[in-house]
Amino acid sequence: MPIALYALTVGAFGIGVTEFVIMGLLLQVSTDLHVSVPTAGLLITGYALGVFVGAPVLTLATRHLPQKTTLLVLMAIFTVGNLACALAPDYGLLMAARVLTSLAHGTFFGVGSLVATSLVAPERKASAIAVMFTGLTLATLLGVPFGSWLGVALGWRATFWAVSVIGLAALVVLALLVPKAGERPAPAPLKDELAVLTRPQVLLSLLMTVLGFGGVFAVFTFIQPILVTLAGFDKANVSPILLVVGAGLVVGNILGGRWADRHLSGALVGTLVLLTLVLVGAGFAFHDRITAVIISFLFGAAAFATVAPLQLRLLHQAGGAGQGLASSLNIAAFNLGNALGAWLGGVVIDQGPGLAAVPLVAALVPLSALGLAMVSLALERRTAGAMAGYGQGAD
C-alpha cells in the first residue's frame, strides 16, 4: 500500500481518539462536572451531531481546495477543538468544544476515502478504505485505553491535552506524507453533486449506515458502566478490556475490507447479520467477567467489519460527481447513528428496563439495517433485470 495511506491512518487515529476516548471517561466527567452518566453520554451525541452537520457543509465549502490543503485545515480545527475541551470549565463549554472538534471529522474521512481509493487499483479500493479506517481501530485499541487510564490517573482533562498533542503530530505527518498527486480535479457543478441526494439507493445506503452504527453506539457509549455495573469490573480494569475491544475492531476492519473486495453484497448482508447476533449475545454475556471479555472482542470485530462494506456500497451507488459529497455524508450517517445510539442507550437506562437491557434493545437497530439491505439489493436486482430485458428487446 502507498505510504500516503498510512499518513491518512495517522490522521484517522487522532480523530478516532477524540471521538471514542470520552466513553472511558464518562464516570469521571459526570462526577467532576456534577451531571448524570446519561447526561455525560450526551457529549458523544453532541459530537456525532456536529459531524452530521459539519460533514456536508465543510465538504461543499472546501470543494475548490486541494485535497491536501483541506486535510490540513481540518486537522488544525480538530487540534484547536481538543485544546478547548481540555480548558472547558463546565459542561456547557465542554459540549461546545466537542461540537467544534467534531466539525472536522466527516469531511476528513470523506476526502480521505477518496484519496485512499485513488491511490490503489480498483480491486483494492475497499482494502484501501480499511487501511485508512485502521486509524480509528488503533485509536480504540491503543488511544482509548491509554486515555481512560490517563483520565483515572491524572483527571479527564489530561486526556484531552494528550489528544491535542496527537493532533499536532498528525498535522505534521499529513503535511509531510500526503502527496500533491492527491490534489483534486476541478469540482463538478454543485447541482450535479447535490443530485446524488435524489437517488433512492444512495438514501437507502445512508440509512443503512445510520441504523448499523446506531446499534453499535447504544452499547459502546455505555461500555464503562456496563463493564463496571454488570460484569463487576473495577474502573481501573476497564482500560485493559477496551484494549480487547480495540483488538476486535482491528481484526473486524481488516476482514470486512477484504470480504467487501471479494463480494460486496455478501459482505454487506453478512456483517449486519453478525453484528445483530453479537449484540443479542452481549445481552447475556456481559453478566459474567470471562464471557464479558470474549463478547467485548466479538463486539469490536462485528462493529467495524461493517465499515468498509457500508462505505464502498455508497460510493458505488453515488458514482461520478456525487462521490465526494456522498462519502462525507456517509461519515455523517455513521455519526448520526452514533448520536441516536447514545440517545437510545440513555433512554433504555433512564426510562426503560435499565442498563442490562441495552445490548438486546440495540440489536434491533442493525436488524432493521439488515432489512433495508435486503430491500436495496432486491431493487438493484430488479433494476438490472429490467435493463437486461430492455437490452434484449432492443435487439
Results as ranks from 00 to 15, higher is better:
183 E>Y: 12
229 T>P: 04
274 L>Q: 05
94 L>A: 11
334 F>V: 11
91 Y>I: 11
43 L>F: 10
71 L>Q: 06
366 P>M: 10
334 F>W: 04
285 A>M: 14
353 P>Q: 08
74 L>P: 07
22 I>D: 00
304 F>R: 04
259 W>K: 10
313 R>S: 14
136 L>F: 15
114 L>A: 11
25 L>V: 02
247 A>M: 14
19 E>W: 01
307 V>N: 07
322 G>Y: 08
318 A>Q: 11
20 F>G: 09
256 G>E: 08
193 E>N: 05
203 L>A: 12
199 R>A: 13
332 A>S: 15
343 W>F: 15
112 G>L: 05
227 L>W: 04
290 I>G: 11
11 G>F: 11
162 A>L: 02
266 G>H: 12
70 T>S: 14
107 T>H: 08
312 L>T: 10
88 A>Y: 09
67 Q>S: 15
119 L>F: 07
332 A>E: 13
228 V>N: 10
143 G>H: 05
129 I>Y: 00
354 G>H: 08
283 G>A: 06
107 T>D: 06
264 L>P: 04
25 L>P: 04
395 D>K: 13
26 L>P: 03
192 D>Y: 07
1 M>G: 12
295 I>P: 02
229 T>F: 09
27 L>S: 15
158 A>V: 05
227 L>G: 03
331 I>F: 09
73 V>Q: 10
16 G>A: 03
323 Q>T: 13
240 P>C: 10
125 K>Y: 06
146 F>H: 03
83 L>Y: 07
354 G>W: 09
282 A>G: 09
106 G>Q: 02
302 A>D: 09
258 R>A: 12
33 L>I: 10
123 E>Q: 12
221 T>S: 12
105 H>F: 06
52 F>V: 11
138 L>P: 04
295 I>L: 09
255 L>H: 06
368 S>L: 14
61 A>V: 03
202 V>E: 05
285 A>I: 06
38 P>V: 10
109 F>V: 01
112 G>M: 06
6 Y>F: 15
37 V>N: 02
75 M>T: 13
162 A>T: 00
151 G>Y: 04
211 L>Y: 02
265 S>R: 15
26 L>G: 05
161 W>H: 07
14 G>Q: 06
81 G>T: 12
126 A>M: 05
191 K>H: 12
58 L>E: 06
119 L>G: 05
269 V>Y: 09
346 G>L: 01
274 L>G: 06
280 V>T: 08
213 F>R: 00
355 L>N: 09
190 L>S: 09
